[in-house]
Design a protein around this nucleic acid. Structure first.
Length: 474
DNA sequence: TGGTAGTTCCG
DNA sequence: GGAACTACC
C-alpha cells in the first residue's frame, strides 16, 4: 500500500501547514519526519541556542502529532539519503514539504525532487513560511529589490496574503514499514541538542515556551496590548513592547499567514499606524529572505563589494570577550549582551546599539558579531541575522549610512531613561541613580563593581569615520 | 530605525 | 545651562 511522507523542516506546526494539510486530506497513511541534516554541503550548523530551541520544539510537535493519531519520526543524516531510505521503507508514493529559500537547502530539495521523479514518486512543495516568495517580487525592470521601502510597497500593492488553514482535525495513521512495524525513529535525547555542563539554558527556559502552543500565546498577548502602542513601545527595551514572535517564526511554529490574518481580523479596516509598523517588521523579515535568495553568500560576503577593502581591525581577545560577556563598560551594550546570553534574545533597539558598538567603536568585522549572534540567539535565521549585521555595518542593502554611529549613552538615556532595562541585566548598577546609571564611570561608587569603558566613544567614533573615509577615497 | 558641533534663543 | 534648530559627518 502506498503512503505519503511529510517532511517538516522550518515549519514545526500543525496550523496552516499546507504540506501536512494536503497529506491529511488524502487517503494515504502518512509518515511525518524531521531530519537533522548536518552533513549536506553548505547547510549551516545550528547555533547553540537554536539547538536548545529545536529540541523543545520537536518535543512539543511530537506530542501534538500524537494527540491527533500521528507521530513524529526523527532521523539524522543527509536529507536526501534519509528520504530515499524512508521512501523505500514505507513504500511512499508522494513526498510533501513546505518550501525554504536558502541556496544549500534549495539544492537539497531540488535534488530530491529530481530523484523522486525518476522513481515515479510525486514530490510537491508549498508556500508556507513567507508571505511573498522572493521570485514573485520584482521591480519595474524585472530585477530584485535592493531597498526596503519600495520592496514592501510592492508587496502590499499585490494580492492580500492567503488565508491560513486551520490544523487538520485528525491526522492519518502512521505508515508501517514493509515489516509491518513502524519505521525506527531516533530518540530526541540522542541528538544531544541540549547543553551539558555547564547548563546555560535556565534563563532560556524561564523566558520561552518553544512550540506551537507557546507561539499562539505570544501572539495573543501581543494582540491584547502592546500592538496598539507598537510604534513607541517597541523602542523601549525596559517595556514588553514587542511581539517576541521571532523565534517562533524562525522555527515555523507560527505561520506568518496566521499572524497576518490575526491582525486583519482584529483591524478589518483603518488599522492604527502602529499595526502598520508591526506589519512592516514582518516585511523586513520578508525583505531579508528576498536578499538571501538573490545573494546566497549574504552571511559571508559583503553585499556592497567595496567593503571588501574595508580596514576592519582584529579585536584583541580581551575586547571581543568583553563584548561577548557584556563587560564593555557601556551599560546599554552590556545589558543587551547579557540579555542575549541569559535569554537567547535581545531587544531590537539594543541589538542595533550593541552591533554598532562592535562594528564601529571596536571596528571589528561584522562577521564576528554575526557569528556570535548566530550561536546565541534563539531567533537567528539564515537571512535576518546576516542581513541585519550588514545593515548595521553599512555594507548591506539599504544599509544604515556609514556615518550613523550609535552612541550607547545617548541611546540609553533616550530609550531607557529610568534605567529599568539597565538595572535588570546589570545588578552592579542597581543602586546608581537615574543619571549615573547611564554613565557609571562618572560615579566613584560604581568603580569596583563595574568595568571602565573599553574604548572612548569620541576617539573610537573618529577612528571609524576615518576608516570609512579611507574606503570612500580609496 | 543618528550623532556631533555650532548656533540661537530662552529662562 | 540647556532646549531647539541646522549642517554636516
Amino acid at each position: 500500500m502506498s503512503s505519503t511522507i511529510v517532511w517538516l523542516r522550518d515549519d514545526l506546526r500543525l496550523d496552516d501547514n499546507p504540506a501536512l494539510s494536503a497529506a491529511a486530506a488524502g487517503p494515504d497513511r502518512m509518515t511525518v519526519v524531521y531530519i537533522l541534516d548536518e552533513v549536506s554541503p553548505g547547510i549551516r550548523p545550528l547555533g547553540g541556542a537554536a539547538k536548545w530551541w529545536l529540541h523543545h520544539s520537536l518535543a512539543a510537535l511530537s506530542a501534538d502529532l500524537e494527540s491527533k493519531g500521528s507521530r513524529l519520526l526523527l532521523r539524522r543524516g543527509a536529507a536526501s539519503a534519509e528520504l530515499r531510505g524512508l521512501s523505500e521503507e514505507t513504500d511512499a508514493g508522494s513526498i510533501l514539504w513546505n518550501r525554504r529559500y536558502g541556496l544549500a537547502e534549495r539544492t537539497v530539495d531540488a535534488g530530491i525532487k529530481e530523484w523522486a521523479a525518476g522513481q515515479g514518486i510525486t514530490a510537491t512543495s508549498f508556500q508556507a513560511n513567507l508571505l511573498f516568495e522572493p521570485w514573485t517580487v520584482r521591480t519595474g525592470t524585472g530585477g530584485p529589490y535592493k531597498v526596503f521601502t519600495p520592496f514592501w510597497r510592492s508587496c502590499l500593492a499585490g494580492a492580500e496574503p492567503r488565508m491560513p488553514a486551520d490544523a487538520p482535525q485528525r491526522l492519518p495513521q502512521p505508515a508501517p514499514a514493509a515489516s509491518g512495524s513502524l519505521p525506527v525513529s531516533d530518540s530526541l535525547d540522542s541528538w544531544g541538542l541540549l547543553p551539558r555542563r555547564p547548563d546555560w539554558s535556565t534563563g532560556l527556559a524561564e523566558t520561552w515556551t518553544p512550540g506551537e502552543r507557546g507561539a499562539g500565546l505570544r501572539l495573543e498577548d501581543f494582540l491584547d496590548g502592546p500592538v496598539e502602542e507598537y510604534g513607541t513601545g517597541r523602542d523601549l527595551p525596559g517595556v514588553e513592547g514587542t511581539s517576541r514572535l521571532s523565534p517562533h517564526l524562525r522555527f515555523g511554529e507560527i505561520s506568518p499567514f496566521r499572524v497576518w490574518q490575526a491582525l486583519r481580523q482584529r483591524y478589518p479596516r483603518n488599522a492604527p499606524a502602529d499595526v502598520g509598523t508591526f506589519r512592516s517588521e514582518l516585511g523586513w523579515r520578508e525583505f531579508c529572505w528576498h536578499l538571501l535568495y538573490e545573494n546566497p553568500g549574504l552571511a559571508t560576503d559583503n553585499y556592497r563589494r567595496e567593503f571588501d577593502r574595508f580596514a576592519w581591525q582584529t579585536p584583541s581577545d580581551a575586547e571581543l570577550t568583553a563584548w561577548h560577556q557584556g563587560r564593555t563598560g557601556y551599560p546599554l551594550v552590556d545589558a543587551g549582551m547579557r540579555q542575549l546570553w541569559q535569554t537567547g534574545w535581545m531587544h531590537n533597539r539594543v541589538r542595533m546599539a550593541a552591533a554598532s558598538f562592535l562594528v564601529k567603536n571596536l571596528l571589528a568585522d561584522w562577521r564576528l558579531g554575526e557569528a556570535w549572534f548566530w550561536d546565541t540567539l534563539v531567533d537567528a535565521d539564515a537571512a535576518s541575522n546576516p542581513a541585519n549585521w550588514q545593515w548595521v555595518a553599512g555594507s548591506g542593502a539599504d544599509a544604515s549610512p556609514y556615518f550613523r554611529i550609535f552612541n550607547p549613552v545617548t541611546q540609553s538615556k533616550k530609550f531607557d531613561s529610568r534605567g529599568r532595562y539597565l538595572r535588570r541585566f546589570i545588578p552592579e548598577l542597581a543602586d546608581l541613580d537615574d543619571k549615573a546609571v547611564h554613565e557609571p564611570w562618572k560615579d566613584s561608587t560604581a568603580a569596583d563593581a563595574y568595568p571602565a569603558p573599553l574604548v572612548g566613544l569620541q576617539e573610537s567614533r573618529a577612528r571609524a569615520l576615518d576608516a570609512y573615509q579611507q574606503l570612500k577615497e580609496g
